[in-house]
Protein backbone atom coordinates (compact mmCIF):
# COMPACT_ATOMS: atom_id res chain seq x y z
CA UNK A 1 0.00 0.00 0.00
CA UNK A 2 1.57 3.33 -1.05
CA UNK A 3 1.80 6.41 1.21
CA UNK A 4 -0.61 8.34 -0.97
CA UNK A 5 -3.27 5.80 -0.42
CA UNK A 6 -2.98 5.52 3.31
CA UNK A 7 -4.18 8.24 5.72
CA UNK A 8 -1.77 10.60 7.59
CA UNK A 9 -0.55 9.31 10.86
CA UNK A 10 -1.40 11.18 14.05
CA UNK A 11 2.20 12.40 14.35
CA UNK A 12 2.20 13.77 10.81
CA UNK A 13 -1.10 15.59 11.31
CA UNK A 14 0.10 17.09 14.59
CA UNK A 15 3.32 18.37 13.06
CA UNK A 16 1.48 19.82 10.08
CA UNK A 17 -1.07 21.50 12.35
CA UNK A 18 1.70 22.98 14.51
CA UNK A 19 3.46 24.36 11.43
CA UNK A 20 0.18 25.83 10.19
CA UNK A 21 -0.55 27.46 13.55
CA UNK A 22 3.00 28.84 13.69
CA UNK A 23 2.77 30.33 10.19
CA UNK A 24 -0.65 31.80 10.92
CA UNK A 25 0.73 33.35 14.10
CA UNK A 26 3.52 34.94 12.06
CA UNK A 27 0.97 36.30 9.61
CA UNK A 28 -1.18 37.67 12.44
CA UNK A 29 1.88 39.31 14.02
CA UNK A 30 2.80 40.84 10.68
CA UNK A 31 -0.70 42.21 10.17
CA UNK A 32 -0.68 43.64 13.68
CA UNK A 33 2.76 45.16 13.16
CA UNK A 34 1.69 46.58 9.80
CA UNK A 35 -1.37 48.20 11.35
CA UNK A 36 0.69 49.68 14.18
CA UNK A 37 3.32 51.08 11.82
CA UNK A 38 0.63 52.42 9.48
CA UNK A 39 -1.01 54.26 12.39
CA UNK A 40 2.41 55.51 13.47
CA UNK A 41 3.17 56.78 9.98
CA UNK A 42 -0.19 58.55 9.82
CA UNK A 43 0.55 60.21 13.18
CA UNK A 44 4.04 61.23 12.03
CA UNK A 45 2.61 62.74 8.85
CA UNK A 46 0.12 64.77 10.91
CA UNK A 47 2.88 65.76 13.36
CA UNK A 48 5.06 66.88 10.46
CA UNK A 49 2.26 69.08 9.14
CA UNK A 50 1.72 70.60 12.60
CA UNK A 51 5.46 71.31 13.02
CA UNK A 52 5.76 72.81 9.52
CA UNK A 53 2.71 74.99 10.18
CA UNK A 54 4.22 76.31 13.43
CA UNK A 55 7.44 77.27 11.70
CA UNK A 56 5.59 78.79 8.73
CA UNK A 57 3.57 80.91 11.19
CA UNK A 58 6.81 82.12 12.81
CA UNK A 59 8.25 82.90 9.37
CA UNK A 60 5.16 84.88 8.41
CA UNK A 61 5.13 86.82 11.67
CA UNK A 62 8.90 87.25 11.79
CA UNK A 63 8.57 86.34 15.46
CA UNK A 64 7.76 86.20 18.25
CA UNK A 65 7.17 82.48 18.42
CA UNK A 66 5.23 81.20 21.42
CA UNK A 67 7.65 78.94 23.27
CA UNK A 68 6.60 76.13 25.59
CA UNK A 69 4.27 73.15 25.42
CA UNK A 70 0.78 73.12 23.96
CA UNK A 71 -1.66 70.52 22.70
CA UNK A 72 -3.34 70.31 19.33
CA UNK A 73 -6.29 68.12 18.25
CA UNK A 74 -5.92 66.73 14.74
CA UNK A 75 -7.60 63.77 13.03
CA UNK A 76 -9.32 62.98 16.32
CA UNK A 77 -6.03 62.58 18.16
CA UNK A 78 -4.16 64.79 20.60
CA UNK A 79 -0.66 65.97 19.70
CA UNK A 80 1.82 67.58 22.08
CA UNK A 81 3.73 70.53 20.56
CA UNK A 82 6.93 71.70 22.20
CA UNK A 83 8.52 74.90 20.85
CA UNK A 84 11.87 76.15 22.02
CA UNK A 85 14.09 79.01 20.91
CA UNK A 86 17.77 79.37 21.68
CA UNK A 87 20.38 81.93 20.67
CA UNK A 88 22.55 81.16 17.71
CA UNK A 89 26.15 82.21 17.22
CA UNK A 90 25.25 83.75 13.84
CA UNK A 91 23.36 86.61 15.52
CA UNK A 92 20.01 84.89 15.32
CA UNK A 93 17.87 82.24 16.91
CA UNK A 94 17.20 78.55 16.50
CA UNK A 95 13.56 77.59 16.68
CA UNK A 96 12.93 73.92 17.35
CA UNK A 97 9.48 72.38 17.12
CA UNK A 98 8.92 68.86 18.43
CA UNK A 99 5.49 67.30 17.89
CA UNK A 100 4.59 64.02 19.58
CA UNK A 101 1.44 62.12 18.71
CA UNK A 102 -0.16 58.99 20.23
CA UNK A 103 1.97 56.80 17.95
CA UNK A 104 5.02 56.96 15.74
CA UNK A 105 7.34 58.85 18.05
CA UNK A 106 8.25 62.56 17.99
CA UNK A 107 8.89 64.60 14.83
CA UNK A 108 11.40 67.45 15.21
CA UNK A 109 12.01 70.30 12.78
CA UNK A 110 14.53 73.10 13.21
CA UNK A 111 14.64 76.56 11.61
CA UNK A 112 17.42 79.08 12.10
CA UNK A 113 16.39 82.69 11.82
CA UNK A 114 19.06 85.31 11.17
CA UNK A 115 16.90 87.87 12.97
CA UNK A 116 14.53 87.28 15.82
CA UNK A 117 16.73 87.56 18.87
CA UNK A 118 13.86 89.57 20.29
CA UNK A 119 11.70 86.49 20.63
CA UNK A 120 13.99 84.60 22.94
Amino acid sequence: MSASNRGFSLAETSIASAIMVFVLLILAASVRSFTAVRDGMACRATALTIAADRIAAAEAAGGPARVGTSFVEADGKSFQVFVSCSPDSAAGSIMTVTVTGPAGGPVTLERRFAKGTGWL
Binding site: E59, A90, A91, G92, R111, R112, F113, A114, K115
Partner: peptide
Protein backbone atom coordinates in the same frame (compact mmCIF):
# COMPACT_ATOMS: atom_id res chain seq x y z
CA UNK B 1 15.33 79.02 4.08
CA UNK B 2 17.48 79.53 7.17
CA UNK B 3 20.59 79.70 5.00
CA UNK B 4 18.90 82.30 2.74
CA UNK B 5 17.90 84.34 5.81
CA UNK B 6 21.39 84.18 7.20
CA UNK B 7 22.90 85.11 3.84
CA UNK B 8 20.68 88.20 3.51
CA UNK B 9 21.43 89.21 7.10
CA UNK B 10 25.18 88.76 6.56
Amino acid sequence: SGAADWLAWS
